[in-house]
């Protein structure tokens, strides 16, 4: 199939950037990224700069790929990362617009590559359980109710790709934040630091320049791992308990 691509080209963080138009011949069995590989091979051979885009595992788990396809983070298919999107969803003659994730907290580095370091910062602020190596008690000493374990897992499923931020009209990372807080907050091991954690992580999220949540639900719909929206409710519950409710000591 013949496709027309409008791809965001931006030399570096300072460059203003623009949409460039390319024609590419794709095959329906290709993945979306393989289609871009084909484009890049052609660009290199003809002496042009290939399109820079982030990708790694190409099996939907590492969370590296990050592009907005026709206005949708990771493209049109539900619960699918860009690397798992296949060209059979497109038709001959289609025009596809490809842009980087847009967020003040994710500055563009080059073309479709953005800097998602702010996510690491949010985790550094408290997205962990403090358990030094060697200090752990016997694993089965603490039973965890299955529903808590399951909910923790559903939240821990987050791949940190940032599609939630890219989809959010407010540029909020609340789904990412809520997912980590719910994962750790559902487990007995996560309790001692629970309220300290939420306050620190929320503040870091704020200072990184993410916006506030208006509960539009865009994040959960765009999320390739279908993290449920209620993790944001959990975030708010814990945050209010910690601050307004005074549960965070010291």
């Amino acid at each position: 199939m013949k496709l027309t691509l409008k791809v965001w080209r931006q030399r570096d963080a300072i460059d203003k950037g623009r949409l460039a138009t390319y024609d590419v011949e794709a095959h329906e069995d290709m993945s979306f990224l393989e289609m871009l590989d084909v484009l890049n091979e052609e660009l290199i051979t003809s002496g042009e700069d290939p399109v820079a885009f982030d990708h790694d595992c190409r099996e939907g788990i590492c969370g590296t790929c990050s592009m907005v396809i026709d206005g949708q983070p990771h493209g049109p298919q539900r619960a699918t990362t860009t690397c798992q999107l296949h060209m059979r969803h497109y038709n001959d003659g289609d025009t596809i617009v490809i842009e980087p994730f847009r967020s003040g907290a994710f500055p563009v580095i080059k073309d479709l590559i953005v800097d998602r370091g702010a996510f690491d910062k949010v985790i550094q602020a408290g997205g962990y359980i403090s358990a030094n190596t060697g200090s752990a008690p016997e694993a089965n000493a603490n039973a965890v109710q299955k529903e808590h374990a399951d909910r923790a897992f559903a939240a821990a499923n987050c791949i940190g790709c940032g599609a939630c931020v890219a989809a959010c009209p407010n540029g909020s990372a609340s789904l990412f934040l809520g997912a980590k807080l719910t994962h750790l907050g559902e487990l007995p091991q996560g309790q001692p630091e629970r309220y300290q954690r939420v306050v620190e992580m929320v503040q870091t999220h704020e200072d990184a320049g993410f916006g506030g949540c208006t509960n539009t639900g865009a994040c959960a719909t765009a999320c390739p791992k279908e993290i449920p929206l209620d993790v944001i409710s959990q975030l708010n519950r814990d945050y209010l308990a910690a601050t307004v409710g005074g549960k965070k000591k010291g």
């Binding site: 358990a131 060697g134 008690p137 694993a139 039973a143 923790a152």
Partner: peptide
């Protein structure tokens, strides 16, 4: 054996049975 202890302490959500054990 220590690895499992360590990971559980870190909050790795391993599968559990209905009794809540690993």
């Amino acid at each position: 054996r220590q690895i499992i202890d360590q990971c559980v302490a870190q909050g790795v959500p391993f599968a559990r049975d209905y009794g809540g054990l690993l």
